[in-house]
Design a protein around this nucleic acid. Sequence first.
RNA 1: GGAAGCGUGCCAGAGUGGUUGAAUGGGCCGCACUCGAAAUGCGGUAUGCCCGCAAGGGUAUCGGAGGUUCGAAUCCUCCCGCUUCCGCCA
Length: 417
Amino acid sequence: MIDIKLLREKPDYIKEAIRRKGYKIDVDEILEMDKRRRALIQETEEFRRSGKEISAQGKDASEEDREKGRSLKEKIKVKEKELDVVESDLAVKFSQIPNPAFDEVVEGEGEKGNKELRVVGTIPEFSFKPKDHLELAESLGIVDFEAGAKVAGSQFFYLKNEGAMLELAIITYTLDLLREEGFEVLFTPDMARSKYYLGTGYLPKGDEAQTYEITDSDLGLIATGEVTLAGYHADEILDSKVLPKKYAGMSHCFRREAGAYGKYSKGLYRVHQFTKVEMFVYTTPEESKNMHAELLRLEERIFQGLNIPYRVLEMCTGDLGAQAAAKYDLEAWMPGRGEWGEVTSTSNTTDYQARNLNIKYRLPNGDTDFAHTLNGTAVATSRAIIAILENNQKEDGSVTIPKNLQRYLTFKTINIK
RNA sequence: GGAAGCGUGCCAGAGUGGUUGAAUGGGCCGCACUCGAAAUGCGGUAUGCCCGCAAGGGUAUCGGAGGUUCGAAUCCUCCCGCUUCCGCCA
């Protein structure tokens, strides 16, 4: 959520921010509700104050005053009920206000407005028609979608043999690299309580529902390690001396992908469960933009190390989502379809997520304020595997393992069975 | 899954109905002492919300939600979490 004081003081700025992101929210209605809320608080508190005067008399309170106390109690109850309704209505509306994009983020609608910053690496030239990863993986015997569909449903899969080992190698390679860069490594829970996945912006209901919920419990399967990594320091006040706190979290990710059946829903590109190493940083407002650049640099380092050609996109205002003030994606070249495909995404959520989850930091002078949080994909193994298979395929259908992964594996190529 | 216990401030730990935001100790910050430091002494040290230009005032918060009472950290109910023991299990 945003700072409600900002809304009161600069409603026009917020209206403009909402417009830039392409949201439709009635700000004036929210301001009215806020006014009403504050008036009710004042009335309630005045009743309470009177009540405290009576109870402060202790045992000596007269029967007359006790009676007065009884009637005040009733009045408070009525006001509180009224206040509850106003507050919960306000909370629903207010939480829909998105995090304003930074001024420098280019305005645009949806994906079309995104800006390509650079292309890195060489797009491979094949003397034959390159196969897509699904065809490669199946003939190599390293993935089994049929069994996945039978046991768990469509868009679930088994990784087999070299495929499974490849996934582990990708993870170990990434974690080694991030440890070297000062990240703490966490293997996180794959489930979280609702306040954490809601607080990070992953909604279980609606047209684009992402999250699976566990029946008869407050738990849901996480759609990303961002949820458990943000939750790690929720309701805490971090000493500014320990910032930035950098975590590399490995988890499985579960996505319902409701309404997302499209052109690329076949194969590993869009699946209900995958493994991901996520980077997550807690820092100060002063440092968050630098840290965002840092996360992007690391994502590039990881993919350069895997020798995968990619391009960097800067998201326009219309493609940031509610949480991010700025966001970059890496798209890897995927020869099988002859197009770029998203492999990472890094967002600066400023204090927006920190407000939802109550993550603060303390300055040396004792003041506290909301921290800034940032997240970025280090590697989502399923999509990395697509890029590795498709870019390193040979005419006979075998695949060469990128050099930096070979030290983690007992084979240098995967051959047709 | 069964049984018992516990949940208080940055930490430890008092407090079982009356002005308790909460004793005491530790930590931390400031000041004094010192050439400097240690030790010692003195003072300070939660957060949200509401009103206010501010000074300041009000209100809430002792795991969470309800309830009893003029008054609850203290009593009652439910929930959540943690610990220990038993069972089961990787």
